[in-house]
Design a protein around this nucleic acid. Sequence first.
DNA 1: ATTCATTTTGCATTCGAATGCAAAAATGTT
DNA 2: AACATTTTTGCATTCGAATGCAAAATGAAT
Lengths: 339, 339
Amino acid sequence: MEPRKNKSRATSYDVARLAGVSQSAVSRCFKPGASVSKKMRDKVMAAANELHYQPNAIARGLITRRSNLVAVMVSARLNFYYPEALFSLTERLSAQNMRVLLFTVESEDDVDAVLDQVLQYSADGVISASHLSVAQHELLERRHTPVIMFNRYFDAIDSTSVWCDVREAATTMIEQLLAFGHKKFAFLHGPADGMVGRERLLIAREILTDNGITDIEEASGDYTYESASAAIQNLRKRAPDVTAILCANDMMAMGAVDELRHVMGLNVPRDISVVGFDGLGSARFASYELTTVRQPIGRMSDAAVSMLMERVEKPETSVEKRVLTGSFIQGTSSGPAPQ
Amino acid sequence: MEPRKNKSRATSYDVARLAGVSQSAVSRCFKPGASVSKKMRDKVMAAANELHYQPNAIARGLITRRSNLVAVMVSARLNFYYPEALFSLTERLSAQNMRVLLFTVESEDDVDAVLDQVLQYSADGVISASHLSVAQHELLERRHTPVIMFNRYFDAIDSTSVWCDVREAATTMIEQLLAFGHKKFAFLHGPADGMVGRERLLIAREILTDNGITDIEEASGDYTYESASAAIQNLRKRAPDVTAILCANDMMAMGAVDELRHVMGLNVPRDISVVGFDGLGSARFASYELTTVRQPIGRMSDAAVSMLMERVEKPETSVEKRVLTGSFIQGTSSGPAPQ
DNA sequence: ATTCATTTTGCATTCGAATGCAAAAATGTT
DNA sequence: AACATTTTTGCATTCGAATGCAAAATGAAT
């Protein structure tokens, strides 16, 4: 008998040799529901424990064509919303015995390179919180890799997605502002390619239009706290009569509140109201108490994971869009319009 | 010629057949620095492009014994500090052509299960921001899997780690508080198992002791914003004369500031000063402008990744502790002690 | 004890790429 | 042109687990 090669890791052959059985027997003992006698299982498990054997997921993946890896793509820019979603997804994926391969996407240009990696690692599926082009969708489809778009409904292509419908909550929010007597509104947009923010403000615009308000001021940021500062300065200069600012996300709303209060010396909500979208943890901090529309991140993650798992098990499962509804959060960053 | 089996993915054999060469030639064309003639490379690359061939990372990993996967373990509880570190690490690892396998750890009990997964996937290395026991370290060592402890210096075992030394900055911070005339201090601790927080306040205590202050009030939270609320209530009841609160992290400092200001109606820093540790992005928000000690997350990530890569390439590389220094951030959450 | 049905087990092959070695081709030398 | 040298290529094997199929073992039924 050879002295053990300086392998650090026991293989199924090592276990088989020690237990005096075949390698296939070992393999079967680690496959739930396989046909193994109790005697065999005991022998093998004893040997496996002795050698600290664990099946090699890489080798297994090669033959089964299932890596049990899920690629999760998030945009690095959105520092606050996505961590909550990311952790939430990770927990739920582990519960399904899936591992998370994390990819951050700086800009749209990175996506192709990331997808190459996703495919090289034979991820069983993708959950993407960044935009994918039609070509990119097609690439994944050709490779039979299911994708779930997370919070990306209005993409050109018809793809399986989880989305949060904010219309009802936004209506409540905006009607409350109207009831508060606000007449002059402004939007604080996200970046031009920010689908989610655009959609949110589109809905807001419709609701305002329904109520006869069409003259809306516009300003733009990039979803970050910092970007709100310049946008608000600019906005106040152009349109000092605005009394309600609708921000495309909470982060900018927080930036807006701070700029108005601490730099411009205004009282929010007495002088001006600010509302956001997302329902971040930090939006509830006592310094902000944002009025906002909360996305049910936990339930969105559940939906994304369950839709993904279905498609991993049954690849031909058809496109599905699961829509959850956001809820209105009454904060203290909005209130009656000033005299 | 068989009709293509319904494989969605071209293999090196497919490329070889199309290019009229051997499979090994294809493999070599994708290995940087291999001996291949220009003619061969062109032929192969043309075929590879036509079939959209990309080498299978799983199969490659099996034979090379290099998965190019790095397991990153973070605690899910610390919602704010770690996302910044996580994204920072992910970017740097991608730059080294390594992929991130993300694991969240709810409690210490999860760690064993997570490590099993790490080993099953043959991660080339681990970056851990959660505590590992001696046994866990040994397990990884037996499997020749290098670990870098991220922000975990004072572990029982002598392990390679990145750590942020806050002593100098903390000294500056505390001496400033003393110069501001503060005499009665309180600590807002993290949870009992929070190594980092304990260490920070230990240092703070030493510095205060050096300055003749030994009677310090103590309160405890769990690093979250919310937990500061009860701790502060309790503290104010017991010791209304405290004028400076040192918090184990920024998140609790923010919670403390808000509780003091918005619930208790105090003026921070006029009535009471609050300082933190971390240097979170949100600590800079105008509503807080925390006085704190910032950890250089970017440089810490660089250090972690470079130390890891060294040990992946040369496994026998000895233990190394890289210590970066935190910097004092002057905010407006602290100021002169009240009369 | 014999036959047949059923469950367990092992054999041999497979997944896809990498690599040591030897054969073949290209290049250099005289 | 003949030979030596270097570079390029292909053959065959390997990594570690899973699995179809056939052989072996077990159990049931007569």
